[in-house]
Simulated scan of single mutants.
Amino acid sequence: MTSASDVPRPVPLGTWPTPLEPMPRLAQALGLGADDLWIKRDDLTGTGGGGNKIRKLEWLCGAALAEGATHLVTTGAPQSNHARLTAAAGARLGLETALVLAGSPGGAAQGNLALDALFGATVVWAGDVHGQALTAAAEEVTARLRADGAVPALIPFGGSSALGARGYVTCGRELLTQAPDVDTVVVALGSGGTMAGLVDPLGPERVLGVHCGAVPDPATTVSAFVSDLSGTPHAPGSLRLRLDQVGEGYGVLTGPVMAAMNLTARTEGIVLDPVYTGRAMAGLIAAVEDGDIAPGRRTVFLHTGGLPGLFGHTAAVEAAVSDLGTRSRTL
């Protein structure tokens, strides 16, 4: 574990604390009490359209600046929220950004890809690679930049590392100030750093992670980050996880996720995305149905952002437009 004196200080990128707001109509629709369900608005973090990655990037970009970086390099899927926010952070800090994305060019640049371009990022298409192969592609880009005289900083997938997770240690402490009686915090589990950061101050019993299919072994991934943060081994089996919302895989829309998106939008006017927050809400709904989340206890849904990704997800847009057609009338 790195000592506190060795950790670079974060660079300001967001607006803190983010609001904690009630969701009484959604709570009642789920059979909970009107004061039981709240939402932590980490979709309103500021830079780049907001989202949870800003908390991580404050620490990761702080380390990059301390090392004299001129470029940021990171990885992701074509509609990666993390890639979009890394590009925004780079623009704000005066750093060039290279986004190494899985897939190949082609089709309309919608959703997060349009914002990547707006922020001036360079997109490097890595082909049909994932996991370690995608990381290796980013390392190759980093090596090329270094050979050309640049000082690149490689930002990990999803911004998830023990350093990046410190942003969510701070968020967990915010929550304890805003809602000291919180029983359960529900969060999308993507690359693992957000959940790990929350577990550090809140404990594993109060954090329910809903697996989104971004990593093959979510329990081990999160536990490794928690261990790095605390300096002591953490047992994967102590984590509260739901693995039932992945469906056919990362990025593939499911019926329960679309239903969760519709219900949240129509009861609270809150927009979720089809990959992360939609899955997290579907997991919350399933947890109410099976009794893991009970009436009379304070539950907080952590909104990690991701709105631009909705507009780059063809199946979700088509589902929403199709539903609009059934509701349309002419005068």
Rank of each mutant, 00 (worst) to 15 (best):
G31P: 02
A64Y: 03
L60Q: 08
L253V: 11
A316I: 07
G249W: 02
L60P: 06
T299E: 01
P216C: 13
D183N: 09
M23I: 03
P218R: 13
G46A: 08
V199E: 02
A162T: 14
P274L: 08
G209M: 09
A265C: 13
V185I: 14
D290F: 00
P24N: 03
G94A: 08
G107L: 06
S328P: 00
T221I: 13
P204I: 09
P105C: 09
A29K: 04
A27D: 01
D35P: 05
P218D: 12
I155L: 15
G131H: 07
T74W: 05
V222C: 11
K56E: 05
N81I: 11
G325W: 04
R146C: 04
A98F: 13
L44H: 12
T170M: 13
A136F: 01
P152V: 11
L176R: 01
R144M: 04
A179Y: 00
R146G: 07
A34K: 12
G76F: 03
L134Q: 12
G291W: 00
R55C: 08
L331K: 05
L13K: 10
D292H: 13
P78R: 14
D217I: 12
P295T: 03
Q245C: 14
V271D: 01
T264D: 00
P295M: 04
V186T: 06
V100S: 11
L113D: 03
A91D: 06
L26V: 03
L239P: 07
P216K: 11
A150P: 02
G76E: 07
L310N: 01
D183A: 15
T326M: 11
R166P: 04
G158F: 06
I155R: 05
R9F: 00
R55T: 08
T254N: 03
D36T: 04
